[in-house]
Write a protein that binds this DNA or RNA. Structure first.
Lengths: 335, 335
DNA sequence: CTGTTAGCGCTTTCAC
DNA sequence: GTGAAAGCGCTAACAG
């Protein structure tokens, strides 16, 4: 069934049918109704390929992410799909895994599907010089949205939260409750992780004046066992922290596990602060104190920006949100 | 830039270019190379709409799920996207939320995008009579894959794991270690949840002969606070369980939290068994004993089936996998 | 092995 | 307010 069948049945031309389908104002109410009735009766849906061929758009957004089974990515995905659909856009999922080398391959896939824009979740992709110029280049043909990452360039829109400040703030809060041996636990070298690390170091060096009693532990192998081993080894070889800031709630959970396994009382002898205010932080016992990274706000702001771009407006290219510390059980600023 | 430009530059016809692009064997190596060189040089990508218009396929699979921020869905999604992409298919994401009433709307969206098949994650959709006939009807025009759900019908392929037996087995295992007051905790009335419940009841009634010392608690509001309150109220009004089987690891985590809050020792005074062998089960302390629901196997089997269908074969329509209990800390069959 | 050509279904000028 | 017709870029049947 196609537009011709409808036209025949309604005794109008295909042009008229097309106009009705696309809500063109220059159709009389009478013909509009006549056509619409037949469309409903036959359950006609216009062929997207034919339409796409003419308009060269499929109302589809490509979403590029590492892995949707990551709890942070999953949440972003959930928000995006919902908000995009509400605005008439489909989501084409493209998962690159954790290796950022083959960004080009995945961008090509999305381009070849003629998506209307690309949303990149996570700051991993902006790592290398090559990737940066690749992204800038891609942005020449379609808008690119960076979630939690920053890259300046034409047609590139970034939004992230100020994790540098968040980390610094956490250090100060820990210091204020008497913690003097701080550890930053992280498992990624993404832009965002670096900002957190920098904020941590800055806080330790300047505000808190901790001397050498702070360190950062990078867990290269991202599985629970290895991370626990790393922690054990670190505390043996260096110092035993009384405060841990973890790059995300998953790591914070492992820090908590470490504490329990070694009968360290939390938060009395070890305070733990996670990142992301994820389900982990609420399901655990004691519950995690965590930095709310404002993911929902980030996503909804990005969709708003995207719609403005499609609408021909020129929205702000960079948006930075202020995170907030959610105090629960693993650290309390007032004791 | 299109196929004509390439044809011009290569001094061949568009048909030849098309053949080269599609790896047709009937092109001489010489012309193939000539064309390919120009394609590379100009960075030409064939227009998917035009191709779709002719072939009426976009090599895209629609994935219908409730919400990718659900940990189980997220994992399935991750597996599917990867395996489908490896076989040249894109994934169009379509999230319906937890209300199964408007299945029709979402199926229409996918159909209107001319996906080549629909994968439905979760058994929620097969609830009502309307939905069943809707699915059967949709299957007339494209193959439908049900993950963890069952519905017989032409062109419908189901795979799920035997959660009836799994629950029954769990009951027996609990009984064997002396547990006599069993609670089944669940938050969904999906097919899968019902199978688990039925297995639980069957196990309690027949194998274990527990008398009336078993119960099932349905938590309608799926948030941690409400579930904790439900648990508290249940134990006050009924009996205090010494064994809990939870419909998924999330619920098991909450059961664990309940135990800790009330200083009930796990597994000595309360054994807990979750479902899905998710990240929750490994991140918690003590670690959760859980039923491995074989999600990866389910997904990879489904993709294999799908490819066979596309290939014109007639694969088995129903596949049932045998789950396994992963013993960790919250329950041990040998003490 | 290669070229010609007729669609695929829709949008959009341009006439009327 | 409506219709006729020219594409949009590609595939595949057919002819050579």
């Amino acid at each position: 069934m196609n537009i011709y069948d409808i036209a025949n049945r309604a005794n109008v031309s295909i042009a008229t049918v097309s106009r009705v389908i696309n809500n063109s104002p220059k159709v009389s109410e009478k013909t509009r109704k006549k056509v619409l009735d037949i469309v409903d009766e036959l359950g006609f849906t216009p062929n997207v390929f034919a339409r796409g061929l003419g308009l060269n758009t499929m109302k589809t957004i490509g979403i590029l992410c590492s892995d949707p089974s990551d709890i942070y990515v999953a949440r972003a995905l959930s928000y995006f799909e919902k908000m995009l659909r509400e605005n008439g856009y489909d989501s084409l999922l493209c998962c690159s895994g954790y290796d950022t080398k083959n960004l080009k391959k995945y961008i090509n896939i999305l381009i070849s599907k003629s998506v209307d824009a690309v949303i990149m979740i996570g700051s991993k992709y902006i790592s290398s010089r090559d990737n940066k110029s690749l992204i800038r280049n891609t942005a020449k043909s379609l808008p690119i949205l960076l979630i939690n990452g920053f890259l300046n360039g034409e047609n590139i829109y970034c939004s992230y939260y100020d994790d540098f400040n968040a980390s610094k703030k956490c250090v100060n809060m820990l210091y204020d409750t008497g913690k003097r041996n701080l550890l930053f636990l992280y498992n990624s070298t993404s832009q965002s992780a670096k900002r957190k690390l920098d904020g941590f170091i800055k806080g330790c060096k300047e505000s808190a004046n901790l001397g050498n009693n702070f360190a950062a532990l990078l867990c290269e192998e991202n599985n629970i066992e290895s991370i626990l081993i790393s922690l054990k080894q670190f505390t043996k070889e260096n110092f035993i922290p009384d405060g841990i800031i973890a790059g995300d709630d998953f790591l914070a959970m492992i820090a908590l596990k470490f504490a329990k396994q070694n009968s360290i009382s939390v938060p009395e002898n070890l305070a733990i602060i996670g990142y992301d205010n994820s389900i982990f932080s609420k399901v655990s016992y004691p519950e995690l104190t965590t930095v709310d990274s404002k993911l929902f706000e980030l996503c909804s702001h990005s969709v708003k920006t995207l719609l403005e771009v499609f609408d021909g407006q020129l929205p702000k290219k960079i948006t930075i949100l202020e995170p907030a510390v959610i105090e629960r059980d693993t650290f309390k600023s007032k004791t």
